[in-house]
Design a protein around this nucleic acid. Structure first.
Length: 427
RNA sequence: GGAGAUGUACCCAAGUGGUUGAAGGGGAUGGUCUUGAAAACCGUUAGGGGCGAAUAACCCGCCAGAGUUCGAAUCUCUGCAUCUCCGCCA
């Protein structure tokens, strides 16, 4: 949620900033509502003050033998008057709330405007692997190595689902365990949250109201619940409606959960295999910080996501996203994108974002600063990492001429010492 | 799933319609005293709104929402949460 004071102060500036996010907005109506709200507020408050004063005088007047009936009548009249004001006020405040809560976050000043086409790769790690043989794609490798069963996945769950089998399950789990062990080393707190969340959690994270139809809803629960599309939704709600202590900041969390997502449209050929599905595994990092330190936290989280890929020995790049390509709730996002040789493109494995106080305002997540003033925290999140893209990239990038795949050293302890995955079907 | 009870501030807690403008205690924290500490004593200890340079006064605020009333922490209804018992179940 954007600070309404920023809009009041300089609506044009906010309008221009949101335009860079490809979001057209007209504040003229909002400003009228805002004006009207203020007038009504003053009216109801002075009215109430008078009511309160009169009501409080009743026992005193009674003792003095004064005319209390007169007071009763007067207060009654005031309160009837106030009902109108208050109804109108409520209506306007609801309009304002609906309007403001639908606005996206303000992008950072240094971001280029526009969409995807203005994303800017700012760093590359390692070279694209050069094969002196015909490399296989990950779907082929998953089959020949017996790691993932796509057919049976479709059979038991339908299109867009797959089954990790045997060493594939082991590799998937090893990735997750490796990520977990690294985050623990860095002092992050491990969380296993529920996967079914209530609507407020989605609102605070900023997924709702705009993306309500993009998540899976459960029909049989009352109140309604949805399957989390990312652990961020859970982690960023942990301290909802709390006032945190300054000395407890930054709070650093990570969680492992599957992520459940409705996928609009059909699968393109570049999204074969595990690249896009209804459910994928992800380890997610979230930090709660002061506004002054959130940039530091952001850099730290980008670096952490990178380090994971570096230790796996994989080629990737970091992209600074243009204002129009970062998600609704975020002010700044860097994507870590991994090279997938068979498709010849870089695919996002981590998206590190700073929401600044956008989510904190929605969730009333605050802290007391050194002067005892209550302020909104900043929230940040970043994948660390999503396995469903690391898995195929790892297979493709580390495949050998004989069809085997070398397991990165850091994963071996989590795989019972397996160093190489050998083909089980020789063609 | 069924029945019952409960919900007051960081914690415990008084309060069943009107000086409650929320008592009292604990904890935390600042001060006095002390060489230092303890003890004792004196302060401070929701949040939010609007108006401000800021203060005072003001409005909201006793789980949430609605209602009754001249007036609600207190009465009524609904929701949520917690606890106890019963049933079912990995």
């Amino acid at each position: 949620m954007i600070d309404v004071n920023l809009i009041r102060k300089d609506p044009k500036k906010i309008q221009d900033a949101l335009k860079r996010k490809l979001y057209d907005v007209d504040f003229s109506e909002f400003l009228k509502w805002d004006e009207e709200r203020k007038i009504l507020l003053v009216k109801t408050e002075t009215n109430k003050a008078e009511q309160n004063q009169l009501s409080k005088s009743v026992p005193f007047v009674k003792k003095q033998g004064g005319n209390i009936e007169e007071i009763f009548a007067k207060v009654k009249q005031l309160s009837l008057e106030n009902v109108q004001f208050e109804d109108k006020l409520k209506e306007i405040e609801q309009k304002i709330f609906d309007f403001v809560s639908a606005l996206p976050n303000i992008p950072d000043d240094d971001l280029l405007g526009g969409g995807k086409e203005n994303n800017e790769p700012i760093k590359y790690h390692l070279e694209k692997p050069n094969f002196d043989f015909k490399p296989k794609d990950h779907v082929e490798l998953c089959e020949s190595l017996g790691l993932i069963d796509f057919e049976r996945g479709a059979k038991i769950a339908g299109r867009g689902s797959w089954v990790y089998t045997d060493k594939g399950a082991l590799l998937e789990w090893a990735l997750i365990n490796f990520f977990i062990s690294e985050h623990l080393k860095d002092g992050y707190t491990f969380i296993l949250p529920p996967h079914l969340l209530n609507e407020t959690s989605g609102f605070v994270a900023g997924q709702f109201p705009k993306f309500k139809s993009d998540v899976f809803w459960l029909e049989d629960t009352e109140p309604k619940r949805f399957l989390l599309p990312t652990a961020e939704t859970a982690l960023v709600n942990l301290h909802r409606k709390e006032i945190l202590k300054l000395e407890d900041l930054p709070k650093k969390y990570f969680a492992y959960t599957p992520c459940y997502r409705k996928e609009a449209g059909s699968y393109r050929s570049e999204e074969r295999g595990t690249i896009r599905g209804y459910q994928f595994n992800k380890v997610e990092m979230v930090q709660y910080t002061t506004p002054e330190t959130s940039d530091i936290a952001f850099d730290e989280m980008v670096k952490k996501a990178e380090t994971l890929l570096q230790k796996l020995g994989l080629h990737y790049r970091v992209s600074k996203l243009a204002a129009g390509d970062i998600s609704h709730s975020m002010a700044r996002t860097y994507d870590i994108e991994i090279w997938i040789p068979s498709i010849g493109i870089y695919k996002e494995v981590s998206s590190v974002s700073n929401a600044r106080d956008y989510q904190a305002r929605r969730g009333k997540i605050r802290y007391k600063d050194e002067n005892g003033k209550t302020k909104f925290v900043n929230t940040l999140n970043g994948s660390g990492l999503a396995t469903s893209r690391v898995f195929p990239a790892l297979l493709e990038q580390l495949q050998q001429p004989d069809g085997s795949v070398k397991i990165p050293e850091v994963l071996q302890p989590f795989m019972g010492g397996i160093k190489v995955l050998e083909p089980i079907i020789k063609k």
